[in-house]
Every structure is written in structure tokens, then in C-alpha cells.
Amino acid sequence: MTVTSLIIRLTMSLPSGLASATIKGYFLRLLQLLSTCLAFSLVATTGTWRETIGNWSMFIWCFCFVVTLLTFIVELCGLQFLWPFSWDDFLINYASYSTLLCLSASIIYPTMYIQIVPRGSSWNHAIAATAFSCLASVTYATEVAWICARPSHITCYVLRMPGLLKGLENFVACVIFGFISNTSLYLHQPALVWCVAAYSICLFLGAVALLLYLGGYSNKLPICFPIFLLGLALLSIFLYASALVLWLLYQFDENFGGQPQRSSDVSCHHQLTHLVCTWDQRLVVAILTAVNLLIYVADLVYWARWVFVRD
């Protein structure tokens, strides 16, 4: 019995709670499971992931595989009613984040490793893993478009401006954490630890805001939800602005123990084993911090117009 015929038979026997689930949805889910599983399996066999960014790419593929597998089991057993949030909104948001995360892994992993891995089986595995990561990105993006195209789905929060900004904020924060997973970048200096704390606080609050919306609890706050988001954006701007200033000072200013020149970083002299050295990681974090700060400013402007102008 083929996988397709098995899914068709299971679909026909599912309870009414899964009436909206189709073969197309199961097919996408299986492609997601296959692509993410093959991506981390191929990389695990090469041994080229035992670095900071490599660990982050492996985490992305493993995380997407596990959550997708759990989602598939829930849908297959018709247990969506146990989920406290809107199931479609959860699927859209999860697929959107997975699209961005797998896409970033598809770019960062080959940039760091394919060029330094010697030709042979390891190089072929790294190429194949990148291809499957790209396939995972496409399947997750297809799922977002498919769910939003359903006649029964009225709104697509993640594709509207506030949802898009919140998604970008959280995504950039996740990429930042991928680069600062090398604790030697900040543990030696309390000011840099504060930067990591600022990133963590903003990511946590952003996730809380998203859960409040998905759970339908936004109207149960003691203040209006747009005002809450406006205050959240203002707080995040303060945290990111302080993180940007401190990160630049303590990483690149000699007066604060930083390294203004790339050549002063010893790890940058070993390009055959490290395509992206420690100094490069510091620079990427600084750039991403500035990018996220601008996104939070756009978020603040949006909600300020909503609160003070729209009314």
C-alpha cells in the first residue's frame, strides 16, 4: 500500500472534526517531514555542524521536524479541538516562521560550510542538505498560501501589517540568537550580557503578544490591545537602542576592550576552517540589532497612527 493510498483511507475514516483537512494538506506535511529530516540527517553524517552557526541550523531543522510531526499526529487523530487557540492561525504562524527559519538556514549553512568542506561525500551531503532545506522552505510557504486561500479563512493575521512586523521582529531576534550562541562573545562583559537580556526580553514579550492574539485574549487585558502593543514597541525600541549602543562600544571600541579591526581577531586568520570568524559574528549581530530596531520603529509608527490618528 502506497503512502498516498494510506492517507486517502485514513482521511475517509477520520471524524468530522477533520472534514476540512485534505490530501493536499497531508502531502505538504509529509514533504515538510521528509525534507527537514533529510536535512539534519545528512548534515549529522558530515560532522560539519559542530560549530555555533552549524548547531543553530541543526536546531532549526530538528525543531521544524518535531513540531511538524506533532502537528501531523494531531490532525491525523482529530485532536485540534484540544488546542486552546485557533488551529488555522497556529498553522499559519508556525508555517510562516518555519519558512523564514529554514530559508535562513538554507543561506547561512552553505555560506559557512560548503566552501570549506573538501570535495567528496561530505561535500555532497552538505549540498543535498541545503537543497532539502530549500525544499522545506518552499513547502512551508506553500502551506501559508494554501491556508490563507481557504474560503472559510477570513483573515490572515501573519500577512497583515501588524502580524508581518511582529513576525519579522521575532525572526530577526531568532537569527541574532543563532549568532550569539557562542557565549564567548558576551559573557566576559556585563554590558554585553545586558544586550543578550534585551534581546531575550523583546522576543519573550513578542511571543506573549502573539499568543494573546491567537488565543483570543487580547480583549481581556486591562488596557486596549493596540495601546498595549504601542507600549510594547516603545519598550522594545528602548531595549534595542541600548543594546545597539553597548554592543558597538564593547565589541568595536578599543577604549572599552573591543576590536575595531577585523585583522586584530586571531580567529579571522584561519579562513580554511572558519569562513565566518568571531569578529564577523559580532558585526552581523550589530547589523541585525540595527535592522530590528528599525522594524520596531515601524511597529511603533503603525500603532501610534492606529491609536492617535485612526480614532
Results as ranks from 00 to 15, higher is better:
residue 45 T to D: 02
residue 21 A to H: 10
residue 10 L to H: 12
residue 311 D to M: 06
residue 140 Y to D: 01
residue 18 L to F: 07
residue 83 W to A: 03
residue 195 C to F: 02
residue 260 P to Q: 04
residue 34 L to A: 15
residue 160 R to T: 14
residue 61 W to A: 11
residue 66 V to A: 12
residue 216 G to A: 13
residue 145 A to N: 03
residue 82 L to K: 10
residue 238 F to K: 09
residue 252 F to V: 06
residue 29 R to N: 12
residue 151 P to V: 03
residue 132 F to S: 13
residue 130 T to R: 04
residue 107 I to A: 13
residue 256 F to I: 01
residue 136 A to V: 04
residue 249 L to M: 10
residue 271 Q to V: 06
residue 92 I to K: 14
residue 247 W to F: 04
residue 165 L to W: 09
residue 70 L to Q: 05
residue 104 S to I: 13
residue 253 D to A: 10
residue 4 T to V: 15
residue 282 R to P: 01
residue 12 M to W: 05
residue 222 P to Q: 07
residue 241 A to H: 03
residue 69 L to C: 13
residue 136 A to C: 07
residue 17 G to D: 10
residue 270 H to Y: 11
residue 304 A to K: 01
residue 10 L to A: 09
residue 272 L to Q: 13
residue 79 L to C: 10
residue 79 L to I: 05
residue 123 W to S: 04
residue 216 G to F: 09
residue 265 D to N: 03
residue 154 I to R: 10
residue 24 K to G: 13
residue 263 S to N: 07
residue 95 A to H: 14
residue 128 A to C: 09
residue 122 S to K: 06
residue 124 N to W: 12
residue 26 Y to R: 10
residue 101 L to M: 13
residue 47 G to E: 00
residue 202 C to K: 07
residue 297 V to W: 08
residue 126 A to H: 01
residue 105 A to G: 07
residue 303 W to E: 15
residue 41 S to C: 14
residue 306 W to T: 15
residue 185 L to E: 06
residue 214 L to H: 10
residue 309 V to P: 00
residue 220 K to Q: 06
residue 151 P to H: 02
residue 248 L to C: 08
residue 65 F to H: 02
residue 113 Y to V: 04
residue 228 F to L: 09
residue 69 L to K: 04
residue 78 G to L: 05
residue 51 E to T: 12
residue 62 C to M: 09
residue 175 V to D: 08
residue 298 A to S: 14
residue 297 V to F: 15
residue 280 D to L: 01
residue 109 Y to S: 07
residue 131 A to Y: 08
residue 30 L to I: 08
residue 45 T to E: 05
residue 14 L to M: 13
residue 210 L to K: 15
residue 52 T to C: 11
residue 4 T to G: 01
residue 34 L to W: 14
residue 306 W to Q: 13
residue 259 Q to N: 12
residue 215 G to E: 04
residue 35 S to L: 02
residue 110 P to N: 04
residue 171 F to L: 12
residue 271 Q to G: 07
residue 305 R to C: 12
residue 131 A to T: 07
residue 205 L to Q: 09
residue 91 L to V: 13
residue 88 D to M: 05
residue 236 S to E: 07
residue 92 I to S: 11
residue 113 Y to G: 00
residue 97 Y to W: 06
residue 84 P to Q: 09
residue 42 L to V: 04
residue 59 F to D: 06
residue 229 L to Q: 14
residue 3 V to N: 04
residue 65 F to C: 10
residue 183 T to W: 07
residue 201 I to E: 11
residue 76 L to Q: 11
residue 110 P to H: 06
residue 169 E to G: 11
residue 20 S to Y: 08
residue 281 Q to I: 02
residue 287 I to A: 12
residue 170 N to S: 15
residue 91 L to P: 00
residue 63 F to E: 03
residue 83 W to N: 10
residue 229 L to T: 07
residue 238 F to S: 14
residue 77 C to M: 04
residue 56 W to S: 01
residue 202 C to I: 15
residue 83 W to Q: 03
residue 199 Y to F: 15
residue 37 C to L: 14
residue 81 F to L: 05
residue 199 Y to R: 00
residue 153 H to E: 11
residue 58 M to F: 02
residue 119 R to Y: 06
residue 185 L to R: 00
residue 47 G to S: 03
residue 28 L to K: 05
residue 306 W to A: 14
residue 227 I to M: 08
residue 46 T to S: 15
residue 196 V to F: 09
residue 150 R to I: 00
residue 305 R to H: 08
residue 157 Y to K: 09
residue 258 G to F: 00
residue 149 A to L: 02
residue 106 S to E: 01
residue 164 L to I: 05
residue 136 A to N: 05
residue 36 T to K: 04
residue 129 A to F: 00
residue 6 L to T: 15
residue 302 Y to I: 04
residue 47 G to Y: 05
